[in-house]
Amino acid sequence: MLKFIGHILAVLTLTVLTQLGGIAWLLALAFRRRFIAFVGLYLALSISALWVAPMFGRTPLPCLSGGAFQMQSVMYCALNRQYVVPELQDVVQTFAADMERAHPGTKTQVLDANFPFVTGFPLLPHLSHHDGRKVDLAFYYANDSGYLPSTTRSPIGYFAFEDGPSDCPDATVSLRWDMAGLQGFFPDHVLEPRRMTTALQLLVSDARIGKVFIEPHLKARFNARSDKIRFQGCRAARHDDHIHIQL
């Protein structure tokens, strides 16, 4: 019974994290060397998704890109979280190229996007990344020597928050984590103001983008006045560690 429960938990966990991992685990149960079989099956399913997902309206963002944009970590590709609809892929590519043109040497880094299949399938812990029309972008950072390309304060691009005023009340249960215990471990990089200002201007100027989520104190800090730039609300995760865009 405990073994059965363990398999159920493994399937649920792998499905939540990667969408395809639960299927790979179930198939691996038919093999004697289960873990090796799981790794092989998961790789096969993930690689197949690169070609199959476009048939269902989603396309993978390139994981090994040497151009103006890149996935912030190969982890997002390993977990199948780099998929978007073709229109959003073009938005990201255009935005990154425009950023590099405005500030030569700029690298735009992509964080969580969406899973390859099934509209409505949740990409936790996000509340809205379920249709291929949303993607998160990393902030642009600098130190005393200047702009830091391909760099984020956090190893995964999330949870290194920029402190600022908030009207959200303290809540016992909330996705608005402070992660206070982690903040001291992150390097003291600062937001690169020219690139952050340009990024927000470019994003709101693209007619294909419907909303941009960022914390109000950062909207004010970088003088972003567009109504497209919104506060995501007190019940959602903080957006002073990344920029969320959606069609």
Rank of each mutant, 00 (worst) to 15 (best):
47 I>H: 10
226 S>N: 05
199 A>D: 02
12 L>V: 15
128 S>G: 07
93 Q>W: 13
116 P>Y: 03
43 L>V: 12
235 R>Q: 09
166 S>M: 12
172 T>Q: 12
100 E>Q: 15
142 A>I: 06
241 D>V: 05
22 G>A: 13
124 L>R: 04
183 Q>F: 09
53 A>E: 04
202 L>T: 15
123 L>V: 05
116 P>C: 08
54 P>C: 00
95 F>G: 05
8 I>V: 15
181 G>V: 02
196 M>G: 04
97 A>F: 02
13 T>G: 02
154 S>H: 00
226 S>V: 08
169 P>D: 01
146 G>R: 15
17 L>C: 06
129 H>V: 11
177 W>H: 11
85 V>S: 01
12 L>S: 13
19 Q>A: 07
188 D>W: 09
49 A>Y: 00
136 D>W: 01
212 V>G: 03
212 V>H: 08
95 F>K: 05
53 A>L: 03
190 V>C: 05
190 V>Y: 01
228 K>D: 13
156 I>H: 02
245 I>G: 01
111 L>S: 10
115 F>I: 11
53 A>D: 09
128 S>Y: 04
41 L>F: 02
144 D>R: 14
237 A>R: 15
111 L>E: 02
91 V>D: 06
10 A>K: 11
161 F>S: 00
149 P>S: 13
142 A>G: 03
125 P>Y: 07
24 A>H: 02
222 F>K: 04
38 F>V: 03
164 G>E: 07
81 R>T: 12
38 F>K: 01
138 A>R: 04
237 A>M: 14
75 M>G: 04
174 S>W: 13
63 C>S: 11
53 A>T: 07
191 L>F: 13
73 S>E: 08
191 L>H: 13
217 H>M: 10
186 F>T: 06
27 L>V: 10
115 F>D: 00
193 P>S: 10
141 Y>D: 00
130 H>E: 07
131 D>H: 11
31 F>P: 06
227 D>E: 12
211 K>F: 12
70 Q>D: 05
192 E>M: 05
179 M>C: 13
